[in-house]
Computed example of a mutant assay.
Amino acid sequence: MTNPLAAPDPWDVVAEGYDDLTAEMMLPFAQIALDSAEPKSDARVLDVAAGPGTLTLPAAARVARVDAVDFSPSMIERLRGHVRDAGLGNVEAQVGDGQRLPFPDNEFDTAFSMFGLMFFPDRAAGFSELFRVLKPGGGAVVSSWAPISESEFMTLMFGAFRAANPDIPQPQANLLSLENPEVFVSELRAAGFHEVTVQPHTVSKAYDSAEALWDRYSRGSAQVHLMRRNCDADTWKRREQLMIDYLNANYRPGQALSTTAWLGSGRK
Rank of each mutant, 00 (worst) to 15 (best):
S177Y: 06
L21G: 09
L226W: 02
G89I: 06
A93L: 04
Y217Q: 10
A93C: 04
N106E: 13
N248P: 03
R62S: 06
G138Y: 12
D85H: 06
E129G: 13
L156W: 11
S74Q: 14
R132Q: 01
V183N: 08
D245Q: 00
L247S: 09
S72T: 08
G17F: 12
L247K: 01
G126M: 02
P121M: 04
Q170P: 11
L5W: 04
T110L: 10
P169M: 14
N250D: 08
T110F: 11
T260N: 02
E24I: 15
Q99I: 00
G87S: 05
G220W: 06
F158A: 08
L46C: 12
E150N: 15
L263S: 06
K40L: 11
T22D: 10
R100M: 13
A23T: 14
V14G: 04
T22L: 05
F108R: 10
V14E: 12
A256D: 13
D208V: 08
A37K: 07
I76Y: 03
P200E: 13
V91M: 11
P39H: 05
P253N: 01
A64G: 04
C231N: 14
D19Q: 15
Y217L: 09
T197S: 12
H82L: 09
A233P: 01
F161K: 10
P28T: 13
E240L: 03
A212S: 12
L21D: 04
G159A: 13
P121I: 07
A37E: 03
S113Y: 01
F29I: 11
P147I: 08
P104H: 13
A261W: 01
G220Q: 03
K40P: 07
G116Q: 06
D97G: 09
F127W: 02
L57I: 12
V45E: 13
E195F: 07
V69A: 12
